[in-house]
Amino acid sequence: DSCIQFTRHASDVLLNLNRLRSRDILTDVTIVVNRQQFRAHKTVLMACSGLFYSIFTDPLKCSLGAITLDPKVDSDGFAILLDFMYTSRLTIRESLILAIMNTAVYLQMDHVVDTCHRFIKSSDDR
């Protein structure tokens, strides 16, 4: 037996999901962060964030069309993390790194938190 592994399939799927998001196709939830609104797909959110996984696996909450996050969450940090979910690229700005990390803690994105920690530590070392 043999199989053909399409090595870029995961990134091709993610690219298409991001195109769907940018065109607001089949997006099924609005995330409200400090009066800013972000349209997204619940499946992508819950695949990337422990918080969203908990929300959308809760039968009482899974059909909600809008989720309002804690007002302490930074909307710029959230925007960067949402882009990361759909692109695998985390835009790091020195001025926003703490906001990104705190938002990642809130969203229960532990691996991103660890990466931010390492980035801050390496910046301090320099």
Partner: peptide, 21 residues
Amino acid sequence: YDGVATIKEMGRSIHEIPKQD
């Protein structure tokens, strides 16, 4: 998979959804 010969295909795997219609 163990015991399965894997051929790697490096090209695109699916169609690309355009940015806009």
